[in-house]
Design a protein around this nucleic acid. Sequence first.
DNA 1: CTTGAGATGTTCT
DNA 2: GAACATCTCAAGA
Length: 208
Amino acid sequence: MLDNLNIPKPEEEAFFLQPTLELAQSLIGATLWRHLGSEITGGVIVETEAYISAVDPASHNYRRPSKKRAAMYGPPGTAYIYFTYGMYHCFNVVSEPEGVSAAVLIRAVYPIYGQEIMAARRRLAAPQLTMAAGPGRLCMAFALTRADNMADLRGNDLWISGPSNYYPIEKGTIRTSSRIGISSGQELQWRYYSAGCPAVSGPAALRR
DNA sequence: CTTGAGATGTTCT
DNA sequence: GAACATCTCAAGA
């Protein structure tokens, strides 16, 4: 098990500067970390979706740039967090150079650190592998809200590190599908996930 | 395992 | 008004 001294450091800017579709794949197997007060939580990213405003009808800022969604234009490695369905938050990693609107939605992580904290935030009796499966659940488990919008993902409180030995993912096991919960842009296969992973969201057919 | 309804706030038409 | 990058719970197969 990891201890505090072994928690890895953030990725460099170059990692986040990869083209959005490549970044969405590279993020599978990377680890999301959050340090809030005395609580540390960490999870290996197992499911992502790419959104590229210039060409993607499902993306925020498509044809109609919005001031409220300015974070998507921010420098690569910025957090874009928005509130949806009246109850939930979604967490994105901003990609592409500053001024370009694009991001990768982090849909699910495999919990590897601070599981008890995540379970408590989810109001579960005990930790579950699925407690951060789905963008809304993930934000609850990591206590991410609009207050964290625009945060630098290479900071001390919220960051992303490279592949984990604790839950390694082989490149060959990454699959693609249509994105979940959208009506336009379904022809784009921009969802990436680790096949067969129990921490991926959605019905069984979308986890194989 | 699947389906469907309800909860809820912000943004868009 | 309607739609929405969602989740939970209860009911049915």
